[in-house]
């Protein structure tokens, strides 16, 4: 099983290197182990996460691509669909069977023809448009719904933190 997973991951790595999507860099942590990847995602422009550069790691199972990988941000992020420890909760990382709440029935699910590139593009659009129906971070979902201004301030502060800039805007 691991043999075909490795082959598929190498093919995806080659594809991402030759033809990288805008704002995304991804690849294995070391070429010794293709099942642990690191990636950098830039926040989508014109959103409160704009200009941010967010590091994350992706862990692949040995039966990839039949089972989806797991993704976790390595920086602090305040977002309805990201757990406080950085794990990402998004429909494309779930197999059709494992959604007991039925929230994501219409959304895109994991299937063996999905890929790292598609996951990362989905994560970028998730940053721009949170899904507050199935919240991983309830506080963030509540604030996003009820107090957008404060939510944007927190996001801006975290963006500055990842970039190593002063925490408040200098005007």
């Amino acid at each position: 099983m691991a043999g075909s997973a490795l082959k598929r991951l190498m093919a995806e790595y080659r594809q991402l290197t030759l033809n990288p999507p805008e704002g995304i860099i991804a690849g294995p942590v070391s070429e010794e182990n293709f099942f642990e990847w690191e990636c950098l995602i830039t926040g989508p422009d014109d959103t409160c996460f704009g200009n941010g550069v967010f590091p994350a790691k992706i862990a692949f199972p040995t039966d990839y691509p039949l089972s989806p990988p797991k993704m976790q941000f390595l920086c602090e992020l305040f977002h309805p669909n990201i757990y406080p420890d950085g794990r990402v909760c998004i429909s494309i990382l779930h197999t059709p069977g494992d959604d007991p709440t039925g929230y994501e029935s219409s959304a895109e699910r994991w299937s063996p023809v999905q890929s790292v590139e598609k996951i990362l593009l989905s994560v970028v659009s998730m940053l721009a448009e949170p899904n507050d129906e199935s919240a991983a971070n309830v506080n963030a979902a509540k604030m996003w719904r009820e107090d957008r201004k404060q939510f944007e301030q927190i996001a801006d502060r975290l963006v500055r933190k990842t970039l190593g800039l002063p925490l408040t805007a200098t005007s």
Binding site: D63, G97, D98, E108, V113, Q114
Partner: peptide, 24 residues
């Protein structure tokens, strides 16, 4: 061989009559 692995992994998750096509 991918189909076989797909079925095996679906079975491991308890799916049988609900095994779907691999296309997204």
């Amino acid at each position: 061989s991918c189909w076989v692995m797909h079925c095996a992994s679906q079975l491991a998750q308890g799916a049988s009559t609900a095994i779907e096509c691999m296309e997204a």
